[in-house]
Write a protein that binds this DNA or RNA. Structure first.
Length: 867
RNA sequence: GGGGACGUGGCGGAACGGUAGACGCGACGGUCUCAAACACCGUUGGGGUAACACCCGUGGGGGUUCGAUUCCCCCCGUCCCUACCA
C-alpha cells in the first residue's frame, strides 16, 4: 500500500448528524454503526464538484496554447446519451463501466479524460414541441439538467468542465463547418431520392416511424415521394472503411462482421445490354458474369427510369403502369417480405445479350431493387434461385450453363444450381471453371466495350436531409443565379429560427420563417433563399468525441495538437445497437478529417466494448411494456454505490442481463458487511493507514487472509484491465471481505498480528472496490486514515506473499479425483509422488494395479495412469 | 436463406486443458424477537449412506488427450443481427 501521507485530506461535513467526534487518538471521527448512503454519497459528490476532482487540465478550453504531458494518457468514452426525461439502466451500466475504467487508469498513473455530453437534437423533443407548443430548446435544456442531476447522483467521475450539447449553437456551428468542408470536396451533394410521406399528417417520416407500411402515428398508408435531398458520399470511403478494419484489433469481431456485411462489397461485372431498337443502353451489375450465356430474360425495377420510355404508346403501357403504381404503394418492408411470390409484368420489349446477340424479353419485377446495382438485372434462372422462381411463375425458359463434372448438362433442372462446375453452352467459356469464366468474360466485355469487371457495394450514400425543425440547419443558400452556394465560414452558425409551428407540412418547419429563408446570396449579393432542411442527428454524433477536447474553442472545431494527443479514444463503450450506423459514420468522418489534414489518425476508437442490454421479465425495459426500473428509485432505496455494484455484478458485461429486484439486495448487504469490517478495523487498530504486514509470526488464518489480500489485488487488476470482467472482480472482493470478516470474528482477532492483518485486509478491500463504489470507499478510506482515495496509487500485489509455504495437490487415478495431499511448495516431483502414493484412498485405488504413467503438474495435481 | 453468439444447480453466473458449480439470489434449518420483517450463523447439483465410502453429473453422440465445461467433428435447441443485395 503506497499511500500513507495525509496532507491532502480535506475534512468536511463532519458536523452533520450521525457523526460523532471522539477525542482519541488524533481527533479522528468515528463512523456511525450503520451504513447510510444518503449521508455518505452527497458528501463526496460535493467534494468532487468543489475540487473539480476529475477535470483534466489537458484541454484547449479557450484556444490558448498548452503543453501536453508526456505521460500515459487514457481517453475513456461512453456513447453520449440522448437527453430524454430520465436515464435508464442501460445508461447506468454503460457509464459505470466507463467510470471503473477511468478510475482504474487514473490510479494507475494515466492522465485520464472522461467527458460527457448530450446528443440533444432529434425527434422526441420536436414531437413534444408539436404536442405542447413548448420550444424544443426549452424542453431539451430541461431534460439535460435532469440527466445531469441523475448522472451526478450516481457519482460518475466525469470531467464536467467539458460537457457539451450538440444542440448548442456553439457546437452546431462546427457541425455546419464540417459539412462545408465536405461540400467543398464534393462529399456533400444534392440529388433526388425517395422519402416516406404520410398523406394525412402531411409529413416526411423517418424509416423507424413507418410500421408495416403505415404511419406509426395516424395509421394511414405511407407513400413514397421524390424529394431533392442532401447526401454525404460515404460510398467513396467504402474500401477505406473496409481496409482499415485491420487497425481495429480491439473491436468485437461481431461488430466488425456487421460492418463488413453492411458495406457489402462484392466483386462482379457491369454488363451493358441494349434495347432491340438500339435506342437505349441498360447496364446491369452481376456477381456472376460467368453465367451470362444462361440469361433468358431481363428485369427492371419498377422505379427504373427507362420503364416509362420502353412502354409508352405500346399496348403494354396500361398493365406496366398499373404494376409500377402498385409497387410504389407497397413499402420496402412489404416488398422485402421473405418468400413472397415473384410477381412481374412483361413490357413487350426486348434487349440484346452482348455476348451472343440473344434477344431477352424485358419484364418489370418488384424483387429488383432500384437502389442496389443499377436497378436492372440479367436473369439467369438456371443458376439463381430468385430468377428460377420467377421463370417458373411466368413460364420463362431455363437453360443450364454450369454443370458439375460428370453430370449430364442436358438434364432439366428442378432448382437453380448455384454450385461450382464447368461451363457449358457458353461459347468461348465452355469447359472453364466458374472462376476462370469470370475472368475470361470480364476481359471480353472490356475488349468489346460491353462492360467491365467492377465492384458493387450494399452501402448507400448517407442521406442526411431531414425536413425537420430540431437539427442543425444545413448551411447552404440557393441563389437563382449562382445556384447552390455555401454559407461563408464567418457567417456560421446558421442559427435555427424561432417558429410558431414545429409541425412539418411537406417541407421543413424552417420554411415557415420568411425571415430565415429570405437572405442574400453570399456570392453575388442578390436575393436568395436558405436551405431549410436540417441534418440527421447522426452527423452531430459523428465528431463529438473531438469537440470534447476543446469544448469552448472559438477559432476552430478543435485544436489539432490537443486532438492528436488525446485521440484515438482508448476505450469506447456503448450499446451494440450502434454497431453499424453511428460507428460507421464516426469512422467515415474521421477518415475525411484525416484526408483534409485536420487530424493525424485514421480511426477514432482504438478499443471498443459493446455492452449487453438490461432486461426485465424477459423483455427489454421499455415504458410501453411497463417493466422499467428507474435508476433513481434504486438509488433512493439502496444508494448509488449499491446500484453501480449491482449492474456490474449481474453478469458478464457484454451479455444481456436480467434485472432482479432481489439481487440488488445482495449488493447492498455486501456494502453493509464492508462497512462493518472497515469500521471495526479502524477502531481495533486506530490511527493512520498501516503498511502491509509481514508474514512472520502470523497464524494460519491470518496468513491466509494476508495472501488473500494480494491475490485479490492481482485478480481485480487483471479483471478490470484485461478482461472487462467486472462481475468476477467484484466477487473477488466479496471473497476477501467474507474471509476478513470471519477472521475478525474469530478467536484470535484480538491478537495484535491478526488485528493488523484484518485492518490491512479492510484497507485493501476498500481500495480496490473504489472504482465500483466510490462513495462508500472514500468514506471508509478516510476513516482508515487515508488521503483522498481517487488520488491514491493503485496497489500492486506483493509477489512474495502470494507464494504459499505448502500447497494442496490433487491426486487423480486415471483422471478421477481420489485424494489430496499437502506438500511443501517447492517439493520435488518424486516427493510429491511419494506423498500422493501413500494417501490412503489413493493407495487403495492403486492397490493391485500397475502404474503405467505418472503425470505431475507442479503445485496443482498428480495423475496416476494405471492398468 | 446468410452471418454471429451461446447451451453448466431452482435462478444469475464461475472455472481461458488440471479439485465443476467461486460469488450472489432463492430455498431450508438455526440465533435474535411476544411475533413477523430485517439482520446474523449454518446447509444447499443428483443418487446413495446412520455417517463415511462410492456412483452419476456441464444439451445429445463421437473424437483428440494421462486428464475435456474448455480443443475438433456431427446432431438437437435457444438467442441476436441481417435478409429478394443480382
Amino acid at each position: 500500500m503506497v499511500a500513507s501521507g495525509r496532507g491532502a485530506v480535506t475534512r468536511g461535513g463532519w458536523g452533520e448528524p450521525g457523526y460523532t467526534r471522539r477525542p482519541m487518538p488524533e481527533d479522528r471521527p468515528i463512523l456511525p454503526e450503520r451504513y447510510d448512503p444518503d449521508r455518505v454519497e452527497p458528501r463526496w459528490q460535493a467534494v468532487w464538484d468543489a475540487e473539480r476532482a476529475f477535470s483534466s487540465g489537458v484541454l484547449s478550453r479557450d484556444g490558448e496554447s498548452m503543453s501536453l504531458p508526456d505521460r500515459d494518457k487514457a481517453y475513456v468514452l461512453e456513447m453520449l446519451p440522448y437527453p430524454s426525461g430520465d436515464i435508464h439502466m442501460g445508461h447506468v451500466k454503460n457509464y459505470t463501466m466507463g467510470d471503473v475504467i477511468a478510475h482504474f487508469r487514473r490510479r494507475n498513473g494515466a492522465e485520464v479524460f472522461h467527458p460527457m455530453g448530450y446528443d440533444a437534437f432529434g425527434l422526441p423533443a420536436e414531437n413534444a414541441a408539436i404536442r405542447t407548443g413548448e420550444p424544443p430548446a426549452v424542453v431539451t435544456a430541461r431534460n439535460i439538467a435532469g440527466i445531469r442531476t441523475q448522472l451526478k447522483r450516481l457519482g460518475f467521475a466525469i470531467d464536467w468542465d467539458t460537457e457539451i450539447s450538440t444542440a448548442d449553437p456553439e457546437y452546431y456551428r462546427w457541425t455546419q463547418w464540417l459539412f462545408l468542408r465536405m461540400f467543398e470536396r464534393g462529399l456533400a451533394e444534392r440529388r433526388e431520392a425517395p422519402v416516406n410521406w404520410c398523406p394525412t399528417d402531411m409529413t416526411v417520416l423517418a424509416n423507424e416511424q413507418v410500421v408495416d407500411g403505415r404511419c406509426e402515428r395516424c395509421g394511414s398508408e405511407v407513400d413514397v415521394r421524390q424529394l431533392t435531398q442532401w447526401f454525404l458520399r460515404i460510398t467513396d470511403y467504402a474500401d477505406a472503411l473496409l481496409d482499415d478494419m485491420d487497425l481495429l484489433t480491439d473491436w468485437p469481431a461481431r461488430v466488425l462482421s456487421m460492418q463488413r456485411n453492411w458495406i457489402g462489397r462484392s466483386e462482379g461485372a457491369r454488363v451493358i445490354f441494349r434495347t432491340e431498337d438500339g435506342a437505349h443502353e441498360i447496364p446491369v451489375f452481376t456477381t456472376r458474369p460467368d453465367t451470362l450465356f444462361g440469361a433468358t430474360f431481363f428485369l427492371l425495377a419498377p422505379e427504373h427510369p427507362l420503364v416509362a420510355a420502353l412502354v409508352t404508346g405500346t399496348d403494354r403501357e396500361r398493365d406496366v403502369t398499373e404494376y409500377v403504381r402498385a409497387a410504389a404503394r407497397s413499402t420496402t418492408a412489404e416488398r422485402g417480405a421473405a418468400d413472397k411470390p415473384k410477381t412481374g409484368v412483361y413490357t413487350g420489349r426486348e434487349v440484346i445479350n452482348p455476348v451472343n446477340g440473344a434477344r431477352l424479353p424485358v419484364w418489370v419485377a418488384d424483387y429488383v431493387l432500384m437502389d442496389y446495382g443499377t436497378g436492372a438485372v440479367m436473369a439467369v434462372p438456371g443458376h439463381d434461385e430468385r430468377d428460377f422462381a420467377f421463370a417458373r411463375a411466368h413460364a420463362l425458359p431455363v437453360v443450364r450453363v454450369i454443370c458439375p463434372e460428370g453430370d449430364d448438362p442436358s438434364a432439366p433442372l428442378d432448382e437453380a444450381y448455384v454450385g461450382d462446375g464447368l461451363l457449358t453452352g457458353s461459347g468461348i467459356l465452355d469447359g472453364q471453371t466458374v472462376d476462370q469464366a469470370k475472368a475470361t468474360i470480364s476481359s471480353w466485355l472490356q475488349a468489346h466495350g460491353a462492360g467491365e469487371a467492377t465492384v458493387g457495394y450494399r452501402l448507400r450514400d448517407w442521406l442526411i436531409s431531414r425536413q425537420r425543425y430540431w437539427g442543425a440547419p444545413i448551411p447552404i443558400v440557393h441563389c437563382p443565379d449562382c445556384g447552390t452556394v455555401a454559407v461563408p465560414d464567418d457567417q456560421l452558425p446558421v442559427l435555427l429560427p424561432e417558429v410558431d409551428d414545429y409541425a412539418p407540412k411537406g417541407q421543413s418547419p424552417l420554411a415557415g420563417s420568411e425571415e430565415f429563408v429570405s437572405t442574400v446570396c453570399p456570392r453575388c449579393g442578390g436575393p436568395a433563399r436558405r436551405e431549410t432542411d436540417t441534418m440527421d442527428t447522426f452527423v452531430d454524433s459523428s465528431w463529438y468525441y473531438l469537440r470534447y477536447t476543446a469544448p469552448h474553442l472559438e477559432r476552430a472545431a478543435f485544436d489539432t495538437d490537443v486532438v492528436d494527443y488525446w485521440l484515438p479514444v482508448d476505450q469506447y463503450i456503448g450499446g451494440v445497437e450502434h454497431a453499424v450506423l453511428h460507428l460507421l459514420y464516426a469512422r467515415f468522418f474521421t477518415k475525411v478529417l484525416h484526408d483534409i489534414g485536420l487530424i493525424g489518425f485514421r480511426e477514432p476508437f482504438a478499443r471498443l466494448f459493446t455492452q449487453g442490454m438490461v432486461y426485465r421479465d424477459g423483455a427489454k425495459m421499455s415504458k410501453s411494456k411497463g417493466n422499467v426500473v428507474p435508476p433513481d428509485e434504486i438509488v433512493g432505496q439502496f444508494g448509488a454505490d449499491t446500484l453501480r455494484l449491482y449492474v456490474l455484478f449481474m453478469g458478464p458485461a457484454a451479455d444481456d442481463i436480467e434485472w432482479s429486484d432481489r439481487g440488488v439486495v445482495g449488493a447492498r448487504r455486501f456494502l453493509d458487511r464492508l462497512w462493518a469490517l472497515a469500521r471495526h478495523a479502524s477502531q481495533a487498530v486506530p490511527g493512520d493507514l498501516i503498511e502491509r504486514p509481514g508474514r512472520e509470526g502470523l497464524d494460519g488464518d491470518a496468513a491466509e487472509l494476508l495472501r488473500k489480500c494480494e491475490s485479490t489485488i492481482a485478480k481485480v487488476s487483471e479483471d478490470v484491465a484485461e478482461r472487462f470482467s467486472f462481475h468476477t472482480a467484484i466477487s473477488a472482493v466479496q471473497e476477501l471481505v467474507n474471509l476478513a470478516t470471519r477472521v475478525m470474528q474469530g478467536d484470535d482477532a484480538r491478537e495484535q498480528g491478526t488485528a493488523g492483518v484484518v485492518r490491512y485486509a479492510a484497507q485493501t478491500a476498500v481500495s480496490v472496490l473504489f472504482p465500483f463504489a466510490p462513495h462508500i470507499t472514500s468514506e471508509l478510506w478516510e476513516a482508515l486514515g487515508g488521503p483522498h482515495l481517487w488520488t491514491v496509487a493503485w496497489p500492486r500485489p506483493h509477489e512474495a506473499l502470494l507464494v504459499r509455504d505448502t500447497v494442496t495437490i490433487v491426486v487423480q487415478v486415471n483422471g478421477k479425483l481420489r485424494g489430496r495431499v499437502d506438500v511443501d511448495a517447492g517439493a520435488a516431483d518424486a516427493d510429491v509422488l511419494g506423498a500422493a502414493r501413500v494417501e490412503p484412498k489413493v493407495a487403495a485405488a492403486l492397490d493391485g494395479k500397475q502404474v503405467v504413467r505418472e503425470v505431475v503438474v507442479p503445485g496443482r495435481l498428480v495423475n496416476f495412469v494405471v492398468k
